[in-house]
Amino acid sequence: MTGTSAMSPLLVALISGGVVLGALTGLLAYVTLLERKFAARMQSRVGPYRVGPHGLLQPIADGVKLLLKEHLVPDAADKGVFNLAPVIFFIPCMLIFASMPFAPGLGVADLNIGVLFFLAVSSMEIVGLFMAGWGSNNKYALISAMRAVNQIISYDLPFVMAALVPVMLAGSMKLSDIATAQQGLWFIAYPVIGQLAFIAFIVAGVAAENRTPFDILEAESELIAGFRVEYSGMKFAFIQLGEYAHVIGTSFLGAALFLGAWAGPGPSWLGPLWFTIKALLVFVLFTWVRWSFLRIKVDQILSISWKLLLPLTLLLLLATAVVIVIRSGAGV
Protein backbone atom coordinates (compact mmCIF):
# COMPACT_ATOMS: atom_id res chain seq x y z
CA MET A 1 0.00 0.00 0.00
CA THR A 2 2.30 2.76 -1.21
CA GLY A 3 -0.26 5.32 -2.31
CA THR A 4 -1.95 5.50 1.06
CA SER A 5 1.09 6.58 3.05
CA ALA A 6 0.11 10.24 2.64
CA MET A 7 -3.25 9.72 4.34
CA SER A 8 -3.62 9.61 8.08
CA PRO A 9 -3.69 6.10 9.55
CA LEU A 10 -7.11 6.70 11.06
CA LEU A 11 -8.57 7.55 7.65
CA VAL A 12 -6.95 4.49 6.07
CA ALA A 13 -8.34 2.32 8.85
CA LEU A 14 -11.82 3.79 8.42
CA ILE A 15 -11.79 3.31 4.65
CA SER A 16 -10.42 -0.23 4.72
CA GLY A 17 -12.80 -1.13 7.54
CA GLY A 18 -15.73 0.25 5.56
CA VAL A 19 -14.71 -1.60 2.40
CA VAL A 20 -14.29 -4.90 4.26
CA LEU A 21 -17.59 -4.41 6.07
CA GLY A 22 -19.44 -3.64 2.85
CA ALA A 23 -17.92 -6.49 0.86
CA LEU A 24 -18.55 -8.81 3.77
CA THR A 25 -22.22 -7.99 4.11
CA GLY A 26 -22.71 -8.69 0.41
CA LEU A 27 -20.75 -11.93 0.68
CA LEU A 28 -22.77 -13.02 3.72
CA ALA A 29 -26.08 -12.40 1.98
CA TYR A 30 -25.05 -14.54 -0.95
CA VAL A 31 -23.48 -17.23 1.21
CA THR A 32 -26.97 -17.94 2.55
CA LEU A 33 -28.09 -18.53 -1.04
CA LEU A 34 -25.07 -20.76 -1.65
CA GLU A 35 -25.94 -22.85 1.36
CA ARG A 36 -29.60 -23.15 0.39
CA LYS A 37 -28.76 -24.10 -3.17
CA PHE A 38 -26.12 -26.60 -2.01
CA ALA A 39 -28.47 -28.18 0.52
CA ALA A 40 -31.17 -28.37 -2.14
CA ARG A 41 -28.80 -30.16 -4.53
CA MET A 42 -27.92 -32.68 -1.84
CA GLN A 43 -31.58 -33.42 -1.29
CA SER A 44 -32.52 -33.47 -5.00
CA ARG A 45 -34.45 -30.22 -4.72
CA VAL A 46 -34.14 -27.02 -6.73
CA GLY A 47 -33.84 -24.57 -3.86
CA PRO A 48 -34.72 -20.86 -4.18
CA TYR A 49 -35.65 -20.31 -7.81
CA ARG A 50 -38.50 -17.83 -8.13
CA VAL A 51 -36.92 -14.51 -7.16
CA GLY A 52 -34.74 -13.41 -10.05
CA PRO A 53 -32.93 -15.75 -12.45
CA HIS A 54 -32.09 -18.97 -10.61
CA GLY A 55 -33.17 -17.31 -7.37
CA LEU A 56 -30.28 -14.87 -7.48
CA LEU A 57 -32.29 -12.05 -5.92
CA GLN A 58 -33.50 -14.20 -3.03
CA PRO A 59 -31.06 -12.76 -0.42
CA ILE A 60 -32.25 -9.23 -1.26
CA ALA A 61 -35.88 -10.28 -0.92
CA ASP A 62 -35.03 -11.89 2.42
CA GLY A 63 -33.34 -8.72 3.60
CA VAL A 64 -36.32 -6.54 2.64
CA LYS A 65 -38.70 -8.95 4.32
CA LEU A 66 -36.72 -8.91 7.58
CA LEU A 67 -36.46 -5.11 7.49
CA LEU A 68 -40.20 -4.71 7.18
CA LYS A 69 -41.20 -7.29 9.79
CA GLU A 70 -42.63 -6.24 13.11
CA HIS A 71 -40.40 -6.25 16.17
CA LEU A 72 -42.01 -8.33 18.86
CA VAL A 73 -40.78 -8.15 22.44
CA PRO A 74 -42.28 -10.71 24.83
CA ASP A 75 -44.06 -9.16 27.80
CA ALA A 76 -42.04 -11.06 30.37
CA ALA A 77 -38.72 -10.53 28.63
CA ASP A 78 -35.85 -8.74 30.29
CA LYS A 79 -36.23 -5.85 27.82
CA GLY A 80 -32.78 -4.28 27.99
CA VAL A 81 -30.94 -7.59 27.78
CA PHE A 82 -33.31 -8.89 25.11
CA ASN A 83 -32.80 -5.86 22.86
CA LEU A 84 -29.06 -5.62 23.40
CA ALA A 85 -28.33 -9.33 22.84
CA PRO A 86 -28.43 -9.36 18.99
CA VAL A 87 -25.96 -6.45 18.90
CA ILE A 88 -23.61 -8.04 21.43
CA PHE A 89 -23.85 -11.25 19.41
CA PHE A 90 -23.27 -9.52 16.07
CA ILE A 91 -20.28 -7.30 16.92
CA PRO A 92 -17.73 -10.04 17.72
CA CYS A 93 -18.89 -12.03 14.71
CA MET A 94 -18.01 -9.12 12.42
CA LEU A 95 -14.94 -8.08 14.38
CA ILE A 96 -13.20 -11.39 13.67
CA PHE A 97 -12.54 -10.15 10.14
CA ALA A 98 -10.53 -7.21 11.47
CA SER A 99 -7.32 -9.23 11.75
CA MET A 100 -7.79 -11.05 8.45
CA PRO A 101 -5.29 -10.10 5.73
CA PHE A 102 -7.09 -10.58 2.42
CA ALA A 103 -3.85 -10.13 0.46
CA PRO A 104 -0.32 -9.04 1.40
CA GLY A 105 -0.86 -5.66 3.10
CA LEU A 106 -4.60 -5.62 2.37
CA GLY A 107 -6.71 -5.85 5.47
CA VAL A 108 -7.97 -3.77 8.35
CA ALA A 109 -5.26 -4.60 10.88
CA ASP A 110 -2.69 -7.35 10.45
CA LEU A 111 -2.08 -7.89 14.16
CA ASN A 112 0.89 -9.67 15.66
CA ILE A 113 -1.56 -11.76 17.62
CA GLY A 114 -3.92 -12.30 14.67
CA VAL A 115 -4.94 -15.88 15.49
CA LEU A 116 -5.33 -15.13 19.19
CA PHE A 117 -7.39 -12.03 18.36
CA PHE A 118 -9.69 -14.16 16.23
CA LEU A 119 -10.12 -16.75 18.98
CA ALA A 120 -10.61 -14.15 21.71
CA VAL A 121 -13.17 -12.11 19.82
CA SER A 122 -15.13 -15.11 18.62
CA SER A 123 -15.33 -16.43 22.18
CA MET A 124 -17.29 -13.26 23.07
CA GLU A 125 -20.12 -14.51 20.91
CA ILE A 126 -21.35 -16.74 23.74
CA VAL A 127 -22.12 -13.69 25.89
CA GLY A 128 -24.57 -12.36 23.31
CA LEU A 129 -26.01 -15.82 22.82
CA PHE A 130 -26.58 -16.32 26.51
CA MET A 131 -28.10 -12.84 26.83
CA ALA A 132 -30.55 -13.74 24.06
CA GLY A 133 -31.43 -17.04 25.71
CA TRP A 134 -31.87 -15.56 29.17
CA GLY A 135 -33.44 -12.26 28.17
CA SER A 136 -36.21 -13.94 26.19
CA ASN A 137 -37.55 -15.46 29.41
CA ASN A 138 -38.61 -18.50 27.45
CA LYS A 139 -37.80 -22.02 28.60
CA TYR A 140 -36.78 -23.20 25.15
CA ALA A 141 -34.47 -20.24 24.72
CA LEU A 142 -32.91 -20.73 28.14
CA ILE A 143 -32.35 -24.46 27.73
CA SER A 144 -30.78 -23.74 24.37
CA ALA A 145 -28.46 -21.15 25.91
CA MET A 146 -27.44 -23.59 28.66
CA ARG A 147 -26.64 -26.23 26.05
CA ALA A 148 -24.69 -23.67 24.06
CA VAL A 149 -22.50 -22.86 27.04
CA ASN A 150 -21.84 -26.55 27.54
CA GLN A 151 -20.91 -27.10 23.94
CA ILE A 152 -18.94 -23.96 23.24
CA ILE A 153 -16.79 -24.34 26.34
CA SER A 154 -16.11 -27.96 25.38
CA TYR A 155 -15.13 -27.19 21.81
CA ASP A 156 -13.22 -23.95 22.36
CA LEU A 157 -10.25 -25.90 23.62
CA PRO A 158 -9.80 -28.39 20.73
CA PHE A 159 -10.46 -25.52 18.29
CA VAL A 160 -7.67 -23.45 19.81
CA MET A 161 -5.34 -26.46 19.88
CA ALA A 162 -6.02 -27.31 16.24
CA ALA A 163 -5.43 -23.70 15.21
CA LEU A 164 -2.16 -23.72 17.16
CA VAL A 165 -0.61 -26.40 14.93
CA PRO A 166 -0.18 -24.03 11.93
CA VAL A 167 0.86 -21.30 14.35
CA MET A 168 3.67 -23.54 15.61
CA LEU A 169 4.69 -24.59 12.11
CA ALA A 170 4.86 -20.98 10.98
CA GLY A 171 6.36 -19.75 14.24
CA SER A 172 4.02 -16.76 14.34
CA MET A 173 0.49 -15.81 15.31
CA LYS A 174 0.38 -13.14 12.62
CA LEU A 175 -1.94 -14.37 9.89
CA SER A 176 0.13 -12.84 7.08
CA ASP A 177 3.27 -14.58 8.40
CA ILE A 178 1.39 -17.88 8.49
CA ALA A 179 0.31 -17.31 4.89
CA THR A 180 3.88 -16.50 3.82
CA ALA A 181 5.21 -19.58 5.62
CA GLN A 182 2.97 -21.73 3.41
CA GLN A 183 4.43 -20.54 0.12
CA GLY A 184 6.36 -23.75 -0.34
CA LEU A 185 3.87 -26.20 1.11
CA TRP A 186 0.36 -25.58 2.35
CA PHE A 187 0.00 -26.75 5.92
CA ILE A 188 -2.82 -29.10 4.93
CA ALA A 189 -0.25 -30.97 2.80
CA TYR A 190 2.14 -31.27 5.73
CA PRO A 191 2.54 -35.04 6.23
CA VAL A 192 0.05 -36.52 8.72
CA ILE A 193 0.07 -33.56 11.13
CA GLY A 194 -1.48 -31.19 8.61
CA GLN A 195 -4.37 -33.43 7.63
CA LEU A 196 -5.18 -34.48 11.20
CA ALA A 197 -5.09 -30.88 12.40
CA PHE A 198 -7.34 -29.82 9.53
CA ILE A 199 -9.87 -32.54 10.36
CA ALA A 200 -9.82 -31.54 14.03
CA PHE A 201 -10.23 -27.91 12.97
CA ILE A 202 -13.25 -28.73 10.82
CA VAL A 203 -14.93 -30.86 13.50
CA ALA A 204 -14.33 -28.30 16.24
CA GLY A 205 -15.37 -25.55 13.82
CA VAL A 206 -18.68 -27.22 13.01
CA ALA A 207 -19.29 -27.62 16.74
CA ALA A 208 -18.31 -24.02 17.51
CA GLU A 209 -20.83 -22.83 14.96
CA ASN A 210 -23.56 -25.04 16.36
CA ARG A 211 -24.31 -26.67 13.04
CA THR A 212 -25.66 -30.18 12.59
CA PRO A 213 -24.57 -32.74 13.83
CA PHE A 214 -23.77 -30.47 16.79
CA ASP A 215 -26.94 -28.38 16.70
CA ILE A 216 -28.51 -29.50 19.98
CA LEU A 217 -29.01 -25.88 20.96
CA GLU A 218 -31.41 -25.17 18.15
CA ALA A 219 -32.75 -28.69 17.76
CA GLU A 220 -35.98 -27.88 15.97
CA SER A 221 -37.88 -30.90 17.16
CA GLU A 222 -37.13 -30.14 20.82
CA LEU A 223 -36.38 -26.46 21.15
CA ILE A 224 -38.09 -24.90 18.11
CA ALA A 225 -35.27 -22.53 17.20
CA GLY A 226 -33.44 -22.38 20.49
CA PHE A 227 -32.13 -19.08 21.82
CA ARG A 228 -33.52 -17.02 18.92
CA VAL A 229 -37.08 -18.28 19.17
CA GLU A 230 -38.49 -14.96 20.42
CA TYR A 231 -36.70 -12.76 17.91
CA SER A 232 -38.24 -11.27 14.80
CA GLY A 233 -37.42 -8.71 12.15
CA MET A 234 -34.01 -7.09 12.12
CA LYS A 235 -33.03 -8.47 15.51
CA PHE A 236 -33.47 -11.95 14.09
CA ALA A 237 -31.53 -10.83 11.02
CA PHE A 238 -28.65 -9.66 13.22
CA ILE A 239 -28.44 -13.04 14.93
CA GLN A 240 -28.67 -14.88 11.63
CA LEU A 241 -26.12 -12.61 9.94
CA GLY A 242 -23.82 -12.90 12.94
CA GLU A 243 -23.98 -16.66 12.76
CA TYR A 244 -23.13 -16.66 9.06
CA ALA A 245 -20.36 -14.12 9.68
CA HIS A 246 -18.90 -16.50 12.25
CA VAL A 247 -19.04 -19.44 9.86
CA ILE A 248 -17.46 -17.44 7.04
CA GLY A 249 -14.87 -16.01 9.43
CA THR A 250 -13.96 -19.51 10.54
CA SER A 251 -13.76 -20.56 6.87
CA PHE A 252 -11.39 -17.68 6.14
CA LEU A 253 -9.33 -18.67 9.18
CA GLY A 254 -9.21 -22.27 7.96
CA ALA A 255 -8.14 -21.12 4.50
CA ALA A 256 -5.46 -18.89 6.03
CA LEU A 257 -4.16 -21.53 8.43
CA PHE A 258 -4.23 -24.59 6.21
CA LEU A 259 -4.81 -23.66 2.57
CA GLY A 260 -2.12 -21.05 1.98
CA ALA A 261 -4.42 -18.00 2.18
CA TRP A 262 -3.98 -15.86 -0.95
CA ALA A 263 -1.51 -18.14 -2.75
CA GLY A 264 -2.65 -19.21 -6.21
CA PRO A 265 -1.76 -19.08 -9.89
CA GLY A 266 -1.99 -15.85 -11.83
CA PRO A 267 -0.98 -12.29 -10.96
CA SER A 268 -0.79 -11.25 -7.33
CA TRP A 269 -3.90 -9.03 -7.49
CA LEU A 270 -5.91 -12.23 -7.85
CA GLY A 271 -4.87 -13.07 -4.25
CA PRO A 272 -8.06 -11.89 -2.50
CA LEU A 273 -10.10 -13.83 -5.05
CA TRP A 274 -8.15 -17.05 -4.40
CA PHE A 275 -8.47 -16.48 -0.67
CA THR A 276 -12.24 -16.02 -0.96
CA ILE A 277 -12.56 -19.10 -3.17
CA LYS A 278 -10.62 -21.20 -0.65
CA ALA A 279 -12.69 -19.83 2.22
CA LEU A 280 -15.87 -20.69 0.32
CA LEU A 281 -14.49 -24.20 -0.23
CA VAL A 282 -14.05 -24.58 3.51
CA PHE A 283 -17.56 -23.19 3.95
CA VAL A 284 -18.94 -25.74 1.49
CA LEU A 285 -17.16 -28.42 3.52
CA PHE A 286 -18.96 -27.17 6.66
CA THR A 287 -22.23 -27.17 4.73
CA TRP A 288 -21.58 -30.63 3.39
CA VAL A 289 -21.08 -31.94 6.93
CA ARG A 290 -24.18 -30.11 8.09
CA TRP A 291 -26.49 -31.61 5.51
CA SER A 292 -24.99 -35.13 5.64
CA PHE A 293 -25.20 -36.05 9.30
CA LEU A 294 -27.93 -36.43 11.88
CA ARG A 295 -27.97 -34.60 15.16
CA ILE A 296 -26.12 -36.47 17.90
CA LYS A 297 -26.88 -36.55 21.60
CA VAL A 298 -25.49 -34.22 24.25
CA ASP A 299 -23.36 -36.87 25.95
CA GLN A 300 -21.94 -37.96 22.58
CA ILE A 301 -21.09 -34.37 21.73
CA LEU A 302 -19.27 -33.89 25.02
CA SER A 303 -17.42 -37.19 24.87
CA ILE A 304 -16.23 -36.50 21.30
CA SER A 305 -14.73 -33.27 22.53
CA TRP A 306 -13.14 -34.39 25.80
CA LYS A 307 -12.25 -37.99 25.00
CA LEU A 308 -11.29 -37.78 21.35
CA LEU A 309 -10.60 -34.30 20.00
CA LEU A 310 -8.78 -32.84 22.99
CA PRO A 311 -6.29 -35.72 23.44
CA LEU A 312 -5.82 -35.87 19.67
CA THR A 313 -5.06 -32.18 19.34
CA LEU A 314 -2.76 -32.26 22.38
CA LEU A 315 -0.81 -35.14 20.83
CA LEU A 316 -0.72 -33.23 17.55
CA LEU A 317 0.79 -30.21 19.30
CA LEU A 318 3.39 -32.46 20.89
CA ALA A 319 4.17 -34.11 17.55
CA THR A 320 4.45 -30.71 15.88
CA ALA A 321 6.89 -29.57 18.55
CA VAL A 322 8.99 -32.72 18.07
CA VAL A 323 9.02 -32.25 14.29
CA ILE A 324 10.07 -28.62 14.63
CA VAL A 325 12.89 -29.49 17.03
CA ILE A 326 14.14 -32.30 14.78
CA ARG A 327 14.02 -30.11 11.68
CA SER A 328 15.88 -27.26 13.32
CA GLY A 329 18.72 -29.68 14.12
CA ALA A 330 18.02 -30.92 17.65
CA GLY A 331 20.28 -28.94 20.02
CA VAL A 332 18.32 -25.63 19.76
Binding site: L111, L116, F117, L119, A120, S123, M124, V127, I152
Partner: peptide, 21 residues
Protein backbone atom coordinates in the same frame (compact mmCIF):
# COMPACT_ATOMS: atom_id res chain seq x y z
CA UNK B 1 -0.08 -5.34 25.92
CA UNK B 2 -2.18 -6.82 23.11
CA UNK B 3 -1.45 -10.40 24.10
CA UNK B 4 -2.63 -9.84 27.65
CA UNK B 5 -5.74 -8.07 26.38
CA UNK B 6 -6.66 -10.89 24.01
CA UNK B 7 -6.06 -13.53 26.69
CA UNK B 8 -8.21 -11.52 29.09
CA UNK B 9 -11.12 -11.61 26.63
CA UNK B 10 -10.54 -15.24 25.63
CA UNK B 11 -10.46 -16.58 29.19
CA UNK B 12 -12.97 -14.34 30.93
CA UNK B 13 -15.70 -14.21 28.30
CA UNK B 14 -16.12 -17.97 28.69
CA UNK B 15 -15.36 -17.80 32.41
CA UNK B 16 -18.02 -15.23 33.16
CA UNK B 17 -20.67 -17.20 31.39
CA UNK B 18 -19.68 -20.30 33.35
CA UNK B 19 -20.20 -18.24 36.49
CA UNK B 20 -23.72 -17.38 35.33
CA UNK B 21 -24.50 -20.99 34.65
Amino acid sequence: AEFLGAVQVLLYAGGVITVVV
